[in-house]
Simulated scan of single mutants.
Amino acid sequence: MDLYEYQAKELFARHGVPVPPGRVASTPEEARQAARALKAPAVIKAQVKTGGRGKAGGIRPAPGPSSAEAEARRVLGMDIKGHTARTVLVEKATVPFEEYYAAYLVDRAAGTFLAMVSTEGGMDIEEVAATRPQSLARMPVDPAAGVDAETARRLTDQAGLPEDAREQVAAVLTGLWRVMVEEDALLVEVNPLARTSDGRVIALDGKVTLDDNAAFRHDHAAFADPPPDRGAAGLEARARARGLNYVKLDGSVGVIGNGAGLVMSTLDVVAEVGGGRPANFLDIGGGASAQVMAAALEIVLSDPDVRSVLVNVFGGITACDAVAEGIVTALGTLGEVGHPIVVRLDGNNAEAGRAVLDAARHPMVRMVPTMDDAARAAADLAAR
């Protein structure tokens, strides 16, 4: 889960990393109030989970409360690389004397953590790494040893930071490491890490990606975006809340399968037979229960673009009779179903699954023995 800047800074402050004072606002009037409470010049910062806010006009100075209200009105609702700014961070303006870069990330290729520090903050780090790699210090971090004060000082030395800034930056680096480990993050980044004219070192920006697989160890629910209630994003959010791997596509044939490889193959076959394109990718996973199958069918049938559904299951861990029970359960709770459902069952308990569907005798369900024929049937039905 990616965090907004203000959320990342909440974690920074919790672990001793200095950040400017600020408040979040969702209306221009709230921005005015926040700026008044700061009693200092402010900056209005669009809260979106993408970079390039400054270039897009999403970061604007506000000398006082009235200008904060005016600038927030300009920024709220702004589209930045496909992300809509629904809130702004009203933050005390800080003029940097120098700008640094600091980050920790999971280096999957090396199977460890990687620390990166540079004196060239405020720029795209990819550009620095490509054009001036000598300006970016990289150091693998032993997960067992972590980053203590001595390791942090070595990082600042390797990056060539000014001597009189190294102790403060080292303290920030140890704080950021606590964020990385104690919050189970995959990425912790500050760009820029600013040194002010009075010698303070402070995180002017923050980017954090949390590991969803470790969510059970934390109380991070407040960081999650409220699920959209409509459109493709709404369907994906509803599916995610039920533990389903769903991606909305632009066709008319809903596709449900067990296993990412099988679902991908099914998408290809549907596209090849003509008559309709896949409307979604939905993997119910291995060992799916009847309840999971019912939830999957409900999600797919709620897509207004879907005109037919193809359920393609090869039973292994997933038993075909459980899939069939899920289909019957879903059809019983959804009420009138206006779209045909083509089912191909093979493998574990396939005969029992077919018997369940035969006994249900639902007029909208038809069974087809092979994947190619099932895809062709679903595409033909979608085209009618």
Rank of each mutant, 00 (worst) to 15 (best):
G199V: 08
A260R: 03
A233T: 02
V343A: 04
P18M: 11
L187I: 10
L176D: 08
G332S: 01
G175C: 08
E10Y: 04
Y6C: 14
G285D: 11
D124L: 05
A221G: 09
G326T: 07
L310Y: 10
L187A: 03
V337M: 01
V300F: 02
V188R: 08
S265E: 13
Y104W: 11
D205I: 08
R384K: 13
V255T: 14
V172P: 13
A72F: 02
H83Y: 14
C320T: 04
A40Y: 04
V323W: 01
E91H: 09
Q168M: 04
L193M: 10
A25G: 03
L155Y: 09
A214Q: 10
G231I: 00
D142W: 06
L297W: 02
S289Q: 06
V270L: 08
R60S: 06
V263W: 03
L173A: 12
A360M: 00
A237G: 05
H83E: 14
H83V: 01
K9M: 11
Y6M: 11
A214L: 09
A375W: 08
A324P: 05
V190D: 10
R242A: 14
G353M: 00
L11I: 08
L136K: 05
V247I: 14
A295H: 15
T131L: 13
S252Q: 14
H220Y: 10
V356W: 00
E298M: 00
Q134C: 00
D346K: 07
V190H: 13
Q158T: 12
L3M: 03
F113A: 15
L331W: 03
L173Y: 10
I317G: 12
A241E: 15
A144D: 09
R14W: 04
M78Y: 01
G58Y: 08
G51V: 03
A232K: 07
G243S: 11
A355S: 12
P162F: 12
I202E: 03
A360C: 03
A185S: 14
A37C: 07
P61I: 11
R344G: 06
S289K: 09
A375C: 15
N245Y: 05
A85V: 13
P21C: 02
A383R: 13
A35D: 02
P133A: 07
A42K: 13
A359K: 06
A382D: 10
D305V: 08
E91Q: 15
Q134F: 09
D372S: 13
G206V: 12
L310F: 15
H218L: 07
D107L: 02
A350N: 07
G231F: 00
C320L: 02
V270E: 04
K49V: 14
P21S: 12
I327R: 00
L186A: 07
A144F: 15
N258Q: 02
D229C: 01
P28G: 13
